[in-house]
């Protein structure tokens, strides 16, 4: 009895190994891994850009200057209020060609960076506003100007508050980066698309891709937890 169960198990493995979908995945696994790396690369650069933009836009949103406030509000509203997919096409085929001879990769990073910048701005603004008013008053009462108080007192505290929502934004951005597949950036989703179009192995191809995305997002989440814990003990 145990023996037949064992051979039955082998039979399943055998059936999997000889199925056409399995072969499609193994043949393209390295190709997919390359796409996953590309996805991480694009997301990382977009986040870097988004953090800088978000910091400026978030601070601008707290500004008393009406023009600065208006500009940052317009930027944030536009990129949060319209679909990223639309933004990608608008930038790639519409706006960016007017500025430079744009290629898919840089356009994708700009689109994702602008989009995440708007979300990060709101996260940072909320984080700054969550810091007790007394902190700003204490810093000002010591003679710091507004900028010094921001840099030395408010922002370091705000960054701790915003880590969980920032991690969520990074994960969302990583998943959303699949949308740049539409402008032929050879990231994970695009590679899956290309293989699928020639093999029609939906479950195998997209199942593999989904697992790769999952591994990456889970890793980011764990890194976030770790950072949060380290900062909490400080």
């Amino acid at each position: 009895m145990p023996l037949s169960e064992f051979t039955f198990g082998l039979g399943i493995l055998d059936a999997i190994a000889t199925s056409p979908g399995y072969r499609v995945v193994t043949n393209n696994f390295v190709y997919f891994l390359g796409g996953a790396w590309y996805t991480i690369f694009i997301t990382a650069l977009s986040i870097a850009m988004g953090m800088v933009l978000g910091l400026f836009a978030g601070l601008a949103k707290l500004s008393k200057n009406k023009i600065i406030y208006g500009l940052s509000t317009a930027y944030i509203d536009f990129f949060r209020g319209t679909p990223l997919f639309v933004q990608i096409f608008l930038l790639y085929f519409g706006v960016l060609p007017l500025i430079y001879d744009n290629d898919p990769l840089s356009s994708a990073i700009i689109a994702l960076g602008l989009n995440s910048g708007a979300y990060i701005a709101e996260i940072l603004r909320a984080g700054i506003q969550a810091i007790d008013k007394g902190q700003m008053e204490a810093a000002r009462s010591l003679g710091m100007n507004e900028r010094q108080a921001m840099i030395y007192v408010i922002l370091p505290q705000a960054f701790k508050v915003v880590i969980p929502p920032l991690i969520n934004e990074f994960i969302a951005l990583l998943k959303d980066s699949s949308l740049v597949s539409a402008i032929t950036v050879a990231e994970l989703m695009h590679r899956g698309d290309l293989v699928f179009a020639n093999t029609y192995q939906a479950t195998w191809v997209f199942g593999t891709i989904a697992m790769m995305y999952l591994v990456i997002t889970k890793t980011i989440a764990l890194l976030g937890d770790y950072t949060e814990r380290r900062l909490a003990t400080e």
Binding site: G134, E137, A138, S141, L142, M144, V153, P156, K160
Partner: peptide, 20 residues
């Protein structure tokens, strides 16, 4: 005002120490 504030120390009811 920043220069003058440097010459005026202020102590608050709720301390307002920098927690970080």
């Amino acid at each position: 005002i920043n220069a003058i504030r440097q010459q005026v120390g202020m102590v608050f009811q709720l301390f307002n120490l920098f927690p970080h």
